[in-house]
Write a protein that binds this DNA or RNA. Structure first.
Length: 634
DNA sequence: CTCTTCATAAACACAA
DNA sequence: ATTGTGTTTATGAAGA
């Protein structure tokens, strides 16, 4: 057995993943400044604005990229990075990102690097958008029009990305031929990257686009899945209409699009403008349609504005994070690894994360999946230590998104990709148990859940199974209950919560401030939306059942201290709970071996009492609180 | 530097 | 004797 683990182990993961990870993680709630107001709030978006936007994007990506590279150099597993096409001078990476101009970047980065960079950037953007989307999706669900707008925003975001890429290509910064670049890209991509892509692919409609881009910017393709497929070069479209062309970049990417007599937005006889799908018999008709229906009108302008705001937020976030890290960690080359790690974990304490999200009109940028990346990052970067790179650390619990939602969103990914999930064993076990109808599983069932849900756990069985058992025994939160046919494991939520230190990224104070201060309302709403998204049943269903109430109560109990966990809990309960509350019927949890037991039943009460004083919040606020933190703090 | 959390390895007990 | 379960202890890494 040991042999087994030792041998297989090291599967590696290009250290380079760091980049994306950190990248994505940073996208979370931090920054945007409130108004997103850069400039013109009033009116239309000028070509200049778009240009600016693009440049910002490029800069942002490049900054991230540089940091990533820097960390990669330092990473222990850097040897694997060998293939990484990028080599960035440390000195360069060390300098303040803000100081790097696009020109410098061009000099520093080779085309493949740029491509990788772009890919990362895109992942970030997509993620950002997706987060926004999912996050507020519920709230907006009732207003279909808004939802549509959202979707469009998402799409346009991608379009802008595309445009950016095209521009770079035009400038010769990015090679058009996918092959080589693509390979390097793939090599450079770490599981987390892939994960991100996968998420995009499986989750958001426009995903294909992302995938394609990731795969070498193959713009010439098919977006066979018309509807969902987002018009790839749609980007070109925007500029087409909005940008007169004095623009430094020429509008189009000639060979592929226009010349070919085809249009990026036209395919299979229909318009692929997001949400359109109008049928057009031929190109001419399509062009007409395009001009009539998709000209730069108020709506698109508004969308662009929103996007700009989003981008700006991203930039701010990135800037803050980067700066903070640079300031916080004496950048002496050797520290980059950790630097990035931290980065991905949480917000730099140094900088006041602008609660931006809260105050921003735009949906708060939540850190959904991103976290995942970050965690995987940790995992792998550190994996060299042990053969098997584990889930490593706290991410899972403290900074990660709720496991439930995370899993829900990336379910397919984990199922198929041999990537270690960014959760601790305890989290996973708990989730597995709570997900079961009766909230109890036998050891073997837990094993099965692991293998069923994660490709990663289909190997190294001896190792992780041992870990599972170890965790079950070690943590008080897992309670063994003798059953008729054997023993089953249940979760003691109270204990589970207890074991997690109250650390939010920031101080409780901060949270409170955020709650009371800024955009409390909006946040709350959006948060709820997110919550609802992943845990409908819980919210709807009557307070649970059994042990119940543990869940809800726990939330109270947890109160400020571990919000994220709270959420996690909620989610899992909700998502998993099959519906009703059959949960611990009477039978399951019979007698426990240990007296303690009454565990769930009794504790809640006490909790309540205790909680009451500490958290005198109305039910609503309660929700809020739980929610909020997660949001901001992941 | 210390403490805590986790992952991993492994020894050991026990029952089927 | 083997295997599956559980429990414990030890070790090391990493974060706070």
């Amino acid at each position: 057995m040991m042999v087994e683990s030792a041998s297989e182990t090291i599967r590696t993961t290009p250290s380079n993943q760091n980049g994306v990870s950190s990248l994505s993680s940073q996208s979370d709630g931090g920054g945007g400044r409130e108004g997103g107001s850069n400039g013109d709030t009033n009116g239309e978006i000028s070509p200049v604005d778009l240009l600016h936007l693009q440049q910002q994007q490029a800069l942002q990506a490049a900054r991230q990229f540089l940091l990533q590279q820097a960390s990669g150099l330092n990473s222990p597993s850097s040897n694997e990075v060998k293939q990484s096409p990028v080599q960035v001078p440390v000195s360069m990476a060390m300098m303040s990102p803000q100081m790097i101009t696009p020109q410098q970047m061009q000099q520093i980065l080779s085309p493949p690097q740029l491509q990788a960079l772009l890919q990362q950037q895109q992942a970030l953007m997509l993620q950002q958008v997706r987060l926004t989307h999912t996050h507020s999706g519920w709230i907006l669900s009732k207003a279909s029009s808004k939802q549509l707008a959202f979707q469009q925003q998402l799409i346009q975001m991608q379009q802008l990305q595309q445009q950016h890429i095209l521009n770079l290509q035009r400038q010769g910064l990015v090679p058009l031929q996918p092959t080589a670049a693509m390979q390097s890209l793939q090599q450079a991509m770490c599981p987390s990257d892939l994960q991100q892509l996968w998420k995009e692919v499986s989750g958001v409609p426009s995903s294909e686009e992302a995938l394609k881009q990731a795969e070498g910017l193959d713009l010439s393709t098919n977006s066979s899945n018309s509807t969902s497929a987002f018009p790839k070069a749609a980007s070109a479209h925007i500029p087409l209409h909005s940008l007169p062309n004095g623009q430094s970049h020429t509008p189009k990417r000639d060979s592929h699009e226009e010349h070919a007599g085809s249009h990026p937005l036209y395919g299979h006889g229909e318009c692929k403008w997001p949400g359109c799908e109008a049928l057009c018999e031929d190109m001419g008709q399509f062009i007409k349609h395009l001009n009539n229906e998709h000209a730069l009108d108020d709506r698109s302008t508004a969308q662009c504005r929103v996007q700009m705001q989003v981008v700006q937020q991203l930039e701010i976030q990135v800037s803050c994070n980067v700066l903070a890290h640079i300031n916080t960690h004496p950048v002496n080359g050797s520290n980059f690894g950790s630097l990035l790690k931290r980065d991905s974990d949480a917000y730099p304490e140094g900088l006041p994360h602008p609660p931006t999200s809260a105050a921003t009109p735009i949906t708060p940028l939540r850190q959904g999946p991103s976290v995942i990346s970050s965690s995987s990052l940790h995992t792998h970067s550190h994996s060299h230590t042990h053969a098997v790179g584990p889930i490593r650390r706290r991410n899972s619990d403290k900074y990660c998104t709720p496991i439930a939602s995370e899993l829900a969103q990336n379910c397919e990914f984990y199922k198929n990709a041999d990537v270690r999930p960014p959760f601790t064993y305890a989290s996973l076990i708990r989730h597995a148990i709570l997900e079961s109808p009766d909230r109890q599983l036998t050891l073997n069932e837990i094993y099965n859940w692991f293998t069923r849900k994660f490709a990663y756990f289909r190997r190294n069985t001896a190792t992780w199974k041992n870990a599972v058992r170890h965790n079950l025994s070690l943590h008080k939160c897992f309670v063994r209950v003798e059953n008729v046919k054997g023993a089953v494991w249940t979760v003691d939520e109270v204990e589970y919560q207890k074991r997690r230190p109250p650390k939010m990224t920031g101080s409780p104070t901060l949270v409170k401030n955020m709650i009371s201060g800024l955009g409390f309302g909006s946040l709350n709403a959006s948060y709820q939306a997110a919550l609802a998204e992943s845990s409908l049943s819980l919210l709807n269903s009557p307070p649970l059942v059994t042990p119940p109430s543990a869940a809800s109560l726990n939330m109270l109990h947890v109160g400020h201290d571990d919000v994220s966990s709270t959420v996690e809990q909620v989610n899992s309960n909700g998502s998993c709970s099959p519906t009703l509350s059959p949960q611990q019927y009477s039978h399951p949890v019979h007698v426990k071996e240990e007296p303690t037991e009454v565990e769930e039943d009794s504790r809640p009460v006490s909790l309540l009492a205790g909680v009451t004083h500490s958290l005198p919040l109305p039910s609503d606020e309660r929700d809020l609180e739980e929610d909020l933190p997660t949001e901001e703090l992941e």
